Simulated assay, not measured.
Amino acid sequence: MLSHTNTYSVLELSFKSNDSPWSPSINVPSDLKEHQSVTVTCSAFTPCPHSPPQLTWNLQQDSLRQTEKNTDGTFTTKIQENITLSDTHDGYNIRCSARYPVIGGNKTAETEVTLSVSYAPRNTSASISPSGLVSAGSWVELSCSSRAKPPPRFTWFRISKDGAVNVSVEQVYKLNATEEEEYYCVATNDLGQQKSSVSFVGIKDDPSSGFLILNILKILGIVLLCISIISFECWFRFSKTPKKETEELTYVNNVMETKAS
């Protein structure tokens, strides 16, 4: 029967002859969500428990390291770290390397996993195209954007005197702008929702309508002037006619009285 020393030497010599060392494994819970506290574990097969592999990763370097005996008699060395998840952890790569001591130096293997973390909507905003004031009757496109996982649903609201009115359940809302109004959107998924700032749809003055009104006023002025002139002329003629007839009647009466006398 081999002694412990001879056993470890055989394991080391056997390991030295391999093309590559044993790769570590990273254990991460499934269905990760923001605000969730999870334990991440990096484990490596340990052929010699008295000379375990050195484990390092891109999490905190003071992570607890321990070597455990498995039910089949083998050994595993592991390090663990507790982290509280946020949206910034989504897409984060955790890398763990195991460096094994062998005769003549060391051999290192590395494993990497990418975290997939669900989170509520972030950075929800609304945009208007075209931007700025538009002519009455123009088509305006309101677009809502948000960063979320899973992808959010979008709802558009118009602010009225009676409160917010649901006008659309699409990411892009098109409307015919006839008056000045205010809108905002809400992004929602299973983890929460977020409201955008208020967007103002403004109507600009139409120069052509002002020009038309000016022409109408000019025409009305001319018409009123003509009516005034005609009215004055009629009045003048009417005021002259009775006087002339009175004078003629007086003259005839005087002549008749003279003849009679």
Rank of each mutant, 00 (worst) to 15 (best):
L133A: 12
K161A: 14
N70P: 04
T67V: 14
Q194I: 12
G137E: 09
V186D: 02
V172Q: 11
E233T: 00
C234R: 08
I83T: 13
G163E: 08
I216E: 03
Q36M: 12
P21N: 05
E247C: 09
A187T: 09
A98S: 09
T246Y: 09
V102G: 00
Y8D: 03
S3V: 03
S118N: 12
F232S: 10
D205F: 00
L85Y: 06
P24Q: 01
I230C: 11
V167K: 05
I26C: 01
E245Q: 13
L249F: 14
C226K: 05
T114G: 07
T67H: 01
N6E: 10
Y184C: 01
I227N: 12
T71R: 09
S116N: 13
N123A: 11
V167H: 08
G221W: 06
S145D: 13
V172I: 15
A136F: 01
W57T: 02
A44F: 03
Y92N: 04
T246D: 13
P150Y: 11
T258G: 00
G192K: 02
V165W: 01
M1W: 06
S160F: 04
F238L: 13
C144T: 11
V186R: 02
K107G: 04
G104H: 06
T250R: 09
D19V: 10
S3I: 06
T188Q: 10
N82Y: 05
V117R: 01
Q193A: 11
V40W: 02
T258P: 00
L115E: 11
Y251H: 10
S196F: 07
L32Q: 04
F154Y: 15
E112S: 15
R153P: 00
L217V: 08
S37M: 12
K33H: 12
C144Q: 06
Q171C: 07
D205N: 03
S143M: 11
V223S: 13
S127K: 13
Q54W: 12
K195A: 12
P150I: 11
T77W: 01
G210V: 05
D162L: 05
D90P: 03
Y173V: 00
D87I: 05
T246H: 10
V38I: 15
D72F: 11
I103K: 11
V140H: 03
T88H: 00
S14N: 14
K204F: 00
E182L: 02
T241I: 03
N166S: 14
H35N: 14
P52M: 06
E181C: 03
F45P: 01
F236W: 12
T71Y: 08
S131I: 08
E179I: 09
E233C: 00
Y119Q: 07
V113H: 02
G105P: 10
